[in-house]
Design a binder for these strands. Structure first.
Lengths: 342, 342
DNA sequence: CCAAGCAATCGAAGCGCTTCGATAACGCCG
DNA sequence: CGGCGTTATCGAAGCGCTTCGATTGCTTGG
């Protein structure tokens, strides 16, 4: 393993000149640079990460906490971890994976030992213990997801409120006047990240402000039938459905609608807002505002890197707009409401 | 951030004494140790990872390559990465995630810069480019999965051959004399890791040596019906099925058997050998020899750590025995073959 | 009573890099 | 032609830790 010393000797310059040539932090004449580069290539030189980290007081490593609790979807998890890793490499950072049950310990350790320069927190719950921890940590932390209390935190998330507004707008423009929301299992609302709740609130607020009829239902199981029946009981003239629910429920809804003799989009228009596309091996035939890690992760990493390199101050909460993907599941509302039609 | 210097001063000892007290590499008297520990606690001391790595010439980090090609299952990926991470923490190692398309570059970089002490390679294909690379790398590499040419490599995998033998034994002991194997999609056999092929070979070899009738089928799609029909066409008296196939096919098989009026295990006995249990949100009602990351990952990490700490020489290929999980899908063979029975 | 042996501790030399201030070489202007 | 500002390069001081050999102060046996 060649060291910077070997390179300097080989190129006939001082160590510091090699360092400056490689980092570009001071000007080096064209031909010395050429000699140094030749030496590096010949000796197959790569700077020792630990030496560099010690001297420069930065490790060029970002830690990623993705704690495993039983009800998280590992596939979504991996997708986020991968996207963070890819985005980090674009800035020449590597990522350290912290997945132990006790994410706190991992975060503390990476900060205390300066293992990582910064931390990305995934799978954020409404009342996340990692929020309090992050406030007391010496290194920058960026959350992907928004906890209840964002005081002093830097968070990135999708703009679920905007997605809901866009879903309602889309339906309203297609003349739907009665729209139902299928939300998450009641326990999920408690435990999980708080976006499902934000979705419900915004749905109710915005639907009301648009002057349309609306109702929200919370499926108890993965079977969408009771939820659908519940909605139709409360909105007999319902012609539009917005979903922000677990994928199995969505899968089941597709089947249930068929079983009820309802065709999408002739009888009912359906939009899935803020759902993970990854799990959907069998893609849903619904218009979607997908919860796409490729939207949030690069933004989160950009912000963290800016923080690390002192390029920008902490930014509070950043919301990223989801992209509407049309699958033809929205059509103008039928003249007669679907249930009365038959 | 306190340094070892601060601790030494606070405890009234030399720096080296602190180092020895913390590492345990030399004896330190009980009361100096106590003073040092008190000082550490008071100053909230944690050794700087980079300084330690530079001085000791080891980073206590293991790199994990999990390249993302389109046909890999992210959920399984994450499960492996997590299990490796957990196992590594048990040995006080952290894990660096290398996930870029170009895994080679990541491996080279972590070795060249001494970012990581060793590398774990996941998702190994039969002709994996990373095999050649590993041979030329300066740091130990352990593969989870077995490539075609294992010369000079250290690999850990499940003992698929043993699983197949155990599956056949189980069926034979229940008096089944005609057994079919549902293997993978033909392209999967080409591209993927080579265990599906090993499974087919061992199935044919061992079934023949047991003197039973057998056939192998390769489903073209996720629909198991054609595969099942193919098997029955070639083995009209088939009473046992071994599966080593993609999970959707298995899901489909459960449905198809029902549709054909066949009951498990009364009419047909079924065993799933070497399949990922993670994906199966809806658990399959079949006896299983699951492809469980918790079996291989800790073993791989143990081996790597032994290698790193010079405790043991390279071990070649290590095969781990899968654990049979009974779900009641195996019963004694019916007296009359199922198809003729109706 | 002294040499030998042992246990506990210290001091200093690195590990390989970054970075600051100093230095040398050079052209330019008055 | 001397002084000055540039530009390119050098030297050395760390960064915070590990580890080796040396030192100190005891205890023992001869």
């Amino acid at each position: 393993m060649a060291t910077i010393d070997d390179v300097a000797r080989q190129a006939g310059v001082a160590i510091s000149t090699v360092s400056y040539a490689l980092s570009g932090k001071r000007k080096v004449s064209a031909d010395t640079r050429a000699r140094i580069e030749a030496a590096c290539a010949e000796l197959d030189y790569a700077p020792r990460a630990s030496a560099r980290a010690l001297a420069a007081n930065r490790s060029e490593v970002i830690a990623v906490t993705a704690p495993l609790h039983p009800d998280t979807d590992p596939s979504a998890h991996m997708a986020f971890a991968m996207e963070v890793t890819i985005a980090a490499r674009d800035h020449d950072y590597d990522t350290l994976l912290l997945v132990h049950d006790d994410a706190q310990q991992g975060m503390r350790r990476s900060a205390a030992t300066a293992l990582a320069d910064g931390i990305i927190v995934l799978d954020v719950a409404a009342h996340d213990e990692r929020a309090a921890l992050a406030r007391g940590l010496s290194c920058p932390v960026v959350f992907i997801g928004v906890p209840e209390d964002t005081e002093g935190l830097v968070c990135v998330d999708l703009d679920f409120e905007a997605a809901i507004r866009q879903s309602i707008d889309t339906l309203v423009h297609a003349d739907h006047r009665s729209v139902g929301l299928i939300s998450q299992h009641p326990e999920t609302l408690e435990r999980e990240s708080n976006y499902p709740l934000r979705v419900v609130h915004e749905f109710e607020r915005y639907a009301a402000s648009c002057g349309i009829e609306f109702a929200v239902t919370y499926p108890e199981t993965d079977d969408a039938a009771p939820a659908l029946d519940d909605l139709f009981a409360r909105l007999p003239g319902m012609t539009g459905i917005v979903m922000n629910t677990a994928n199995p429920v969505a899968q089941s809804l597709a089947a249930t609608l068929g079983a009820r003799g309802l065709t999408v989009p002739q009888d009912v228009s359906v939009i899935a807002a803020g759902m993970t596309p990854i799990m959907a091996r069998t893609p849903l035939p619904f218009d979607t505002l997908p919860l796409d890690p490729r939207l949030t992760c690069p933004v989160a990493v950009d912000i963290l890197v800016d923080l690390l390199e002192g390029k920008a101050p902490a930014r509070g909460v950043t919301l990223v707009t989801q992209i509407y993907q049309s699958q033809g599941s929205v059509a103008p509302a039928p003249v007669a409401p679907p249930l009365q039609a038959r």
